[in-house]
């Protein structure tokens, strides 16, 4: 399978070929890749791509896996509608 056909980040449609191109430009860590390519910023919040990107960084730059940090964990763990948050807040008021 060609690298341009291997989708790493499904939310933001980033392929393995895209990732390699960014590596070549010098983006060598998850935080910078996230800022440039939006990996980890979609509805799955990196739950699909983060581990794969960590592996690819480790392989490409020949670093130990544990030296390759992945994303910050931030709320939420899954999407919640604003209306539901509003209603819950009003119930508490």
């Amino acid at each position: 399978m060609k690298n341009e056909d291997i989708v790493i980040c499904r939310c933001s449609d980033v392929t393995l070929a895209d990732l390699y191109e960014l590596f070549e430009q010098g983006y060598d860590n998850f935080e910078e890749l996230k800022r440039i390519a939006r990996v980890g910023m979609g509805p799955c919040q990196g739950n699909t791509c983060a581990k794969m990107i960590q592996w690819e960084i480790a392989k490409y730059f020949d670093r130990p896996l544990e030296a390759c940090a992945i994303k910050n964990i931030r709320p939420f763990t899954m999407g919640v509608k604003l209306q539901a948050i509003k209603e819950a807040a009003e119930d508490e008021d």
């Binding site: 509805p43 919040q45 939420f76 999407g79 919640v80 509608k81 604003l82 209306q83 509003k86 508490e92």
Partner: peptide, 21 residues
């Protein structure tokens, strides 16, 4: 809580959107 109340109050259709982060 405050953000959801304000946003849905001023721009009601936004209530149907899911917050992801």
């Amino acid at each position: 809580d405050e953000m959801a109340k304000t946003a849905v109050g001023l721009l009601p259709p936004l209530g149907e959107l899911r917050v992801i982060r």
